[in-house]
Simulated scan of single mutants.
Amino acid sequence: MALKVFVTGYVGGTAFAYIYNAHKDNEYTLLVRNEARAQVVKEKYPTVKFVYGGLDDVDIIEQAASEADVVVHTADSSDHVPSATAIIKGLQKGHTAEKPGYWLHLSGTGILTWYDLVNGREGQAPLPEQKYHDINDIERIQNLDDRAPHRDVDKIVIAANSDAVKIAILCPPLIYGKGSGPGNTETIQIPTLVDMTLREGFAPVVGDGKNEWDYVHIDDLGDLFVKLFDATQDPSKNTNPEIFGPNGYFYSPYGTLNFEKIAERVAEEIKKQGYLADVPIKHVSFAEQTKLKGYHPVAETLGHNSKGVAERASKYLGWAPKQPISVEDDVAEVVSQRAKRLGL
């Protein structure tokens, strides 16, 4: 019997592409804003269905969630409270302990930047206590400071877990690479850094530039979505509290990058491709960064630390990142794309 799957979001474009390609016989419903956006998706996936609306259209989201066996929520999922609440209501309305609904929720390891954020640290090296292991430190993760980014929504998702509603939270770090869904295929952090550099003529580095973020290629994240999706229908896994439930936090880092080094890589590639003759590195404060051309609020993360250790996905799902291209090699493509978009 075909599963009914409700999907939202850009990363959902890649998540959906991976899940769809693995299970083309399922009944898929996608949340899109309007028919024009739906048409782009329809051309690639002619059998999918659509519901039209935004994340504040809670009645639409609730109804779609109530009809779905699995909800894959990635559209501003880490920070949008009304849509998360609507999904809970829908899953609770449409499922029972005998036939539970599954919720694959996208959060992010931006939540791990909380210490730097609360303590006003800018571009400083990570402290040992800022590293979180997704199995050994699960109690620390479940009880993170309430001032942490995404924390309010994560708490809502965790509280929703019950015999009728089974939850899992995916927490990717910095995502790089080109998405495989229709429409927008770009990630955020590195393109934002490239934008600011191209527009300002220098590569901004927050503070001392010693902070670090973990990273993962978007295709590896798509593969993790598939493995977690498959687990919803595997009796040996879908009752395992280490996969679905409050313990089901899945980190997915492949490696670690330093933002001064990635800024240097951006500057080098811009010069190599001939867009600017000289691209110096300039150290700035968070306040100064907000005034730069091309700034996006996500750029605040460029000055904080996010350090996670992933074992849960490999231990319980057999996931292992393959990293199709390195994060450094991805910079070259991002520079080319963003320069063309800016008309350079």
Rank of each mutant, 00 (worst) to 15 (best):
H80N: 15
P204Y: 12
G245H: 08
H133N: 12
R147Y: 05
V327H: 02
G201V: 10
K4T: 10
Q124E: 15
N136S: 07
E98M: 13
V81G: 06
A38V: 03
A125Q: 11
G53K: 12
K155N: 15
A97N: 09
E122P: 01
T85A: 08
E139D: 13
S326L: 10
T256N: 06
R199N: 14
I190N: 02
I158Y: 10
D69K: 00
P246W: 05
D146G: 02
Y45T: 03
V72I: 15
G274D: 11
V216Q: 06
R312S: 05
G108W: 01
I325L: 12
E129P: 00
E268C: 01
P280V: 06
D214C: 14
L91V: 01
T301E: 08
D76W: 04
V71M: 02
P172V: 03
L112G: 03
S236C: 10
P126W: 04
T85D: 14
L174N: 12
A22E: 10
T301R: 01
Y52H: 07
H150A: 02
V334G: 01
T85W: 00
Q189V: 07
K271F: 01
H105K: 03
T74Y: 06
D223G: 05
I156L: 15
I243D: 07
H23V: 06
D137E: 03
T47K: 15
Y249N: 12
T256D: 00
A148Y: 04
I111K: 04
V335Y: 06
A75H: 01
Y45Q: 07
D69H: 00
K293S: 11
E98H: 10
I325H: 03
P182C: 13
D195N: 15
I158F: 12
V5C: 07
M1S: 14
R33Y: 14
Q92M: 13
K42A: 15
T239S: 14
M196L: 13
P280H: 06
L276S: 04
E311I: 02
P46R: 12
N238P: 03
D230A: 13
V298F: 15
P100Q: 12
P82S: 13
I158R: 11
D220S: 07
T113M: 11
G209R: 10
N305Q: 10
S236V: 10
G201Y: 09
V335L: 05
V71G: 02
V71R: 00
L228Q: 09
K291H: 08
R37I: 03
A159R: 07
P235Q: 11
A277P: 00
Q273W: 06
A332L: 04
G343E: 05
P173E: 04
D79I: 06
G248Y: 12
